[in-house]
């Protein structure tokens, strides 16, 4: 029973979404299913926040290794939640001056806006920027000319890396117009548009069929392993 009900919810919701694409009569039903998902996901956030609090509080009370980080997590979480929900420091909305709390939570001058601009933006940008470092170390380790395919991959990488910068113009900009197709910047566009696109299309078609078959297995109840083992 514990698994039968979710399975049937998944099957019914799945078929409703599928049919709503083609049959106008089920269109609003499809939208309703989408809205229900959003509501359930929003409610589930309480469970997520609860789990976060529980795990970190337990860590602090047990004085586990690194419990200080858990304390920082909880303090930051609480501060952001309070200033966001309480709209602390938010100026009153000019649109609805008579209504309390009508200003935007992230309006200029608010604490939430400050956290966004001076804490969240730099931190997330820093994490994203780490990619440049990891790409370099991965390239150093992984791009080895082990066989013919790897040599082709390497040569392509060189053309695209150079073609996407001014180095390409400097190295091959002297080529006459009739041979302009061989300039690195044009070669890199050609590689991206022809070879890369062909390969990507093949992968996309394979994925699309894989998604269809997987969805069908779930909708028909053949595959139940997403709820646990398939027994």
């Amino acid at each position: 029973m514990k698994r039968l009900v979710p399975m049937w919810i998944a099957i019914i919701a799945g078929f409703v979404m599928l049919l709503s694409t083609f049959f106008p009569i089920t269109e609003s039903l499809g939208e309703t299913v989408g809205e229900i998902f959003n509501v359930v996901a929003a409610i589930a956030f309480v469970l997520g926040a609860g789990s976060l609090a529980k795990v970190n509080l337990a860590k602090i009370s047990r004085r586990d290794q690194g419990w200080g980080y858990a304390a920082i997590t909880l303090i930051c979480f609480t501060i952001t939640l309070v200033v966001g929900l309480g709209k602390i420091g938010v100026p009153q909305s000019t649109q609805f001056p008579l209504l309390g709390w009508s200003g935007e939570k992230d309006a200029e001058g608010s604490i939430f806006g400050w956290i966004y601009e001076f804490a969240l933006v730099p931190i997330t940008s820093t994490m994203f920027a780490l990619l440049a470092f990891y790409v370099a170390s991965a390239a150093f380790r992984a791009f080895r000319a082990k066989n013919l395919e790897a040599i082709l991959l390497l040569s392509t990488a060189f053309i695209v890396l150079l073609g996407r910068t001014f180095a390409g113009v400097v190295l091959t900009g002297w080529l006459p117009d009739w041979a302009s197709g061989l300039r690195l910047e044009n070669l890199s566009v050609y590689i991206m548009q022809v070879f890369n696109t062909a390969g990507n299309r093949a992968i996309i078609i394979g994925i699309a069929l894989g998604v269809t078959a997987t969805s069908l297995r779930i909708l028909l109840g053949v595959d139940r392993s997403w709820m646990g083992s398939g027994d």
């Binding site: 440049a132 370099a136 390239a139 150093f140 990488a157 890396l161």
Partner: peptide
Amino acid sequence: AHLLMIALIILGN
């Protein structure tokens, strides 16, 4: 960054 990547790939090889 791109020139460094090329240099690293060559050194790696």
